[in-house]
Structure formats: C-alpha cells, structure tokens
Design a binder for these strands. Structure first.
Lengths: 159, 159
DNA sequence: CATAATCTTGACCAAAAAGTAATGATTTGT
DNA sequence: ACAAATCATTACTTTTTGGTCAAGATTATG
C-alpha cells in the first residue's frame, strides 16, 4: 500500500500553485524547477490535472497554470482519485490471477479489509484541503494530527 | 495509494493456511488452485513468506506449507511490511525527481501527510490478525468495522 | 537405493508504470 | 504578419513490478 509517483508529484505541483498570490501563475519550467522534476514530466502531470478541472491554463507568452478553484475548496481525496485512476472500484476485477474472474467471487474474506482500508484512507483525505498543505513541515504535521485525531495513538505492537 | 499484487496474493495465500486444521498443510499446487494463481507464482510468494518467517515448509512427498505461528498471533501490518518491502521509511529517498535528493529536503509540507497516511494504514492493520480474516465476507466485514470503529462514518463530501 | 513428489533458487520474460521527446496549436508583443 | 513563448497531445523509451521457467536439492516410500 503505497503512494504512486504520479500521486506524489501531482500533489506537489498543485501545492506549488496553492502557494501563489491571486492573479499569479506558473509556467511548466517553473513548476519543474521548484519540484525537481523534468519539464516534460511536469507537462504530463499538469495536463492530467487540467483535464480533471483542478487547474486552468493560458497559452502563449505570459501563459502558465493556476488553480481553478480556491485552495481551501479542493479536497485531497478528489485529487488522489484522479491521479490514481479510481482504484477502489476496480479491486475484484484487477486481481484475478490467471483466471478471468476472481476465485472468491461472491464471498471473499479479505475483500472487506481491502475495501475498508481504502475507506479509511479516503476518509482521512476527505478532511484535508490543498490549502492545509501550505506551510512548513511542522505546522502541517500539527494540522494533520489535529484533524485526523491521531495524537500518536498507535498502540504498542506485538513482535 | 493501492494494494500491490504481491500484497494481495501473499495475504490470500496466508489466509488459506490459516484455514487449515492443526497438523495439516498445503502444497504449492493446492495453494495455487485455491487462489486461482499459477504454481510458479505461488512458489515465489511462499518463498518470500518463508524467508520472513510466517510459514514453515517441508519438502518431499507429503510436504507442504503451514503457518509458523498461530493465526491469531500474526498481525497484518507485519505481513504487509514484508510483502511491500518497507515503503514508509523510504519515502523521501525514492521520490526525488531528476535529482539525487528531494528538493524539499529538511522542510516539506506534504511529508507529514504522506507519513501520516501510512501511519493510519499501519494503525488499522496492526489491529487485525490473520485469524480475523477467516470466515465469510459478511462476518469479516462486521469484524473489521467493529475493530476499526468506522461504522460508516464517512462524511458527505463536497463535489 | 531408486523414484516420485515436493520445495528452492536464480535467471529469464512480460506487462505496467514512469518518464521523455517531438510535433502541433495558441497567444502575446512588436 | 511574424517571432517567441507557452501549453497540448501523442508516440516512444526506460524502469519497475509481476510472473514464468528450468535446473537443483530434499524427503518419503516401496
């Protein structure tokens, strides 16, 4: 269970735009520079995010990208859903081994766990907006744990 | 953020072993058959799980695999950690774009969120054992939501 | 001891994800 | 109108992950 490259970099590009003042925008080379990725890669990511309606773009000299909505109106679960291409609904269709359909069709013990995990993550992400990611590491960390109500409650684990 | 093939199939193979009565074991062809995967693939997965100490194996006629510990003593977070090759600790080292190290070195707004998400998942998995995955879909679903305290509390989301 | 059943291991092949390149379209400014 | 800057789109290449194969090692059994 991990964050994909596309999710990570896509999110980071959006955070760059969330940092801008009203009326400002960033070009692909600028975004690439600020996130340490290639311009081509930034182009592909922004293309996706544009198609999905998170950003607007203008072409030509003085062109660039900016958020389509205020940063505190864009929830992380929406973003991740786009960058990850709707994982949840595809679970039982994608892991079918060598067969056409999963052997556990109809009654599957681990399905509730997989689905439940995605639910938990979705739930957590739906409480965060792009705006909440603007700031330094310490402040974002505090915000995250406050919103999620985690407070380092991970219990001592058996070894 | 998704479950990898290795996590999914590895977990499913272990659940098969958890279903066995004391003293029983399963061969690779049997495991493969029951999970709808190839024998070769089952072999690779069981090899990993054997190295990690979750199962024991015996060779030769009448050989096979069985759990190394009681199913209620094996927590899902341990299993996932092995099948996923320690994602959490590697985050800032793996997504560095075209550079040698991440541009956000030292102060990164999204790191707490990524790390926090992994924390949430880890936390959820650490409350579940292999034994809790044995049963039909309905009973496992009920167990999951009871343990995680979720009760379908996902809030209405903005669109 | 020979044979058949089984796990073990490393090399290999295939599919998916990630990333790059190249060409085309649009806009601004002169 | 033209040139420069910029986004848009598709095709291609590389890397990673997933999966297969084949040769070897071990064990039970007759």
């Amino acid at each position: 269970m991990k964050i994909s490259a596309q999710e990570e970099y896509g999110l980071r590009c959006l955070v760059q735009l969330a940092n801008l003042a009203d009326g400002e925008s960033l070009t692909l080379p600028q975004i690439a520079e600020r996130e340490g990725i290639s311009t081509a890669n930034a182009g592909k990511l922004m293309w996706l995010l544009n198609k999905a309606g998170f950003v607007h773009s203008t072409r030509g000299t003085k062109g660039g990208y900016f958020l389509a909505r205020p940063a505190d109106d864009i929830y992380l679960n929406e973003i991740i859903k786009v960058l990850d291409e709707d994982v949840l609904s595809a679970h039982c269709v994608s892991y079918t081994g060598v067969r056409d359909s999963c052997v556990h069709n109809g009654d599957c013990g681990i399905r509730p766990v997989i689905v439940g995990l995605h639910e938990i993550v979705e739930n957590a992400l739906s409480r965060l907006t792009l705006a909440s990611l603007v700031g330094n590491e310490k402040s974002v960390d505090a915000m995250f744990h406050q919103i999620q109500g985690i407070h380092r409650t991970i219990e001592p684990q058996r070894v």
